[in-house]
Simulated scan of single mutants.
Amino acid sequence: MTTTALVTGANKGLGRETVRRLAARGWEVFLAARDEERGRTAVAELAGSGLAVRFVALDVTSDESVASAASQVKAAVGRLDVLVNNAGVGGEDGPPAEARVAGLRELFEVNVFGPIRVTNAFLPLLREAASPRIVMVSSGMGSFAVARDPRWFDLVPPGLGYPASKAALNMITVQYGRALDGIRINAVDPGFTATDLNDHRGYQTLAEGTDAIIRLAGADGPTGGFFDRKGPVPW
C-alpha cells in the first residue's frame, strides 16, 4: 500500500523540498498551498520528474479551506499516513517594546492556530492509517534553552512574534503527543536554512533543512520530541 502524505505551505522552500523528497520515496504526496497558481506550478514541475504529487488548495487560516482540503484527500485516498505542518510566516522584526498586537495576531494565526486547525481537521484521516505521524515544523528560536544561551545573544536579537509562536507550537506538539494515542507527533528545527523567510541568508541547503522532517516522517521513531538534523533539541 502506497504511503500518503500532505505538506502545508509547500509551493516553495522547505515545504516543496519535503514534498519532493517524500515523493521520491514512492509516496503519494499532496502539495498543499494557499496560492493556487504557485502550488499548481510546483506540482507540474515535480510531476514532470515522474513524482506522484497532487495539488490541494489549503489556507491554514481558513476553517472552510482546511475542511475542503481534508474532504478532497478523503475522496482521493481515504486516509493520511503523514501530515507535515510546514506553513509559517516570519512576521515583523523589531524589539519587543515596538511589537504591534495586530502583527502578532496575524503571525499566530498562521504559525500557531494554523497547525491546530489543520491537525484537527485531518485527525479522522490519520486515524485511518496503520502508523500515522505528524511533523510540526518549528524552530530553534522557539527553544527556551537556546533563547537563554549567551552564545546566541549577538546573533539573534530579542523579538516577540516568531520565537513566541514557535515556542507555542512546541508546547502544542507536547500536548498532542500526550493526547493522541497511536499517532506519533514531533517538532522539528530545520536549522538556519536558506529560504525566503530569512532572505536566503541561511547557511544550510534545503536538503539539509529537511533532513529531520524526512526522518521523522518515516514509519518508525519517537514521539513527543523536538529534533534537528543532528538529534534532540532542548526545549
Score class of each variant (00 low, 15 high):
83 L>R: 08
138 S>E: 02
232 P>C: 13
177 G>R: 01
183 I>S: 11
114 G>N: 08
1 M>W: 11
211 D>M: 06
233 V>M: 14
99 A>G: 03
75 A>Y: 06
113 F>V: 13
141 M>E: 06
43 V>L: 07
187 A>V: 06
16 R>A: 03
164 A>G: 07
63 D>G: 04
71 S>Y: 07
58 L>D: 04
78 G>Q: 14
87 A>Y: 02
225 G>R: 10
147 A>L: 13
128 E>N: 12
4 T>F: 04
215 R>C: 02
102 A>S: 10
164 A>P: 01
66 V>L: 14
92 E>A: 15
118 V>E: 08
99 A>R: 08
146 V>A: 15
51 L>Q: 04
113 F>Q: 14
9 G>P: 08
103 G>R: 02
116 I>S: 06
43 V>E: 02
162 Y>D: 00
44 A>Y: 03
87 A>S: 10
110 V>T: 10
114 G>A: 05
209 G>L: 02
190 P>D: 07
148 R>M: 11
59 D>Y: 05
72 Q>I: 13
29 V>E: 01
134 I>F: 12
137 V>W: 07
105 R>Y: 01
7 V>T: 12
198 N>F: 12
8 T>R: 13
80 L>N: 10
32 A>L: 01
176 Y>W: 15
21 R>P: 03
65 S>K: 04
138 S>W: 00
228 D>E: 09
52 A>Y: 02
25 R>D: 06
123 L>V: 15
56 V>W: 01
113 F>L: 15
142 G>D: 07
181 D>W: 04
82 V>E: 10
206 L>T: 01
113 F>P: 02
225 G>E: 14
55 F>H: 09
71 S>Q: 14
37 E>N: 05
170 N>R: 03
157 P>F: 12
54 R>T: 14
208 E>V: 14
14 L>P: 04
166 K>V: 00
34 R>D: 04
167 A>D: 05
199 D>P: 03
188 V>W: 03
156 V>S: 03
155 L>K: 14
217 A>S: 08
109 E>A: 15
178 R>P: 05
184 R>W: 07
221 G>C: 09
188 V>C: 09
94 G>Y: 07
45 E>D: 15
193 T>P: 02
214 I>F: 13
13 G>Q: 00
194 A>F: 08
113 F>M: 14
98 E>F: 09
177 G>Y: 00
215 R>S: 04
51 L>T: 01
13 G>H: 01
62 S>T: 11
46 L>C: 10
67 A>D: 13
218 G>H: 04
231 G>V: 15
88 G>V: 01
209 G>F: 02
7 V>D: 06
229 R>I: 09
84 V>M: 01
99 A>W: 11
173 T>S: 13
23 A>K: 03
190 P>Q: 11
91 G>F: 08
185 I>R: 01
78 G>L: 07
50 G>I: 03
63 D>T: 04
124 P>M: 10
83 L>N: 08
224 G>K: 06
146 V>D: 09
172 I>Q: 10
195 T>P: 06
143 S>M: 12
17 E>M: 07
81 D>A: 08
45 E>M: 06
25 R>F: 00
185 I>G: 00
18 T>W: 06
217 A>M: 00
90 G>L: 14
40 R>I: 05
162 Y>P: 00
88 G>F: 01
39 G>H: 14
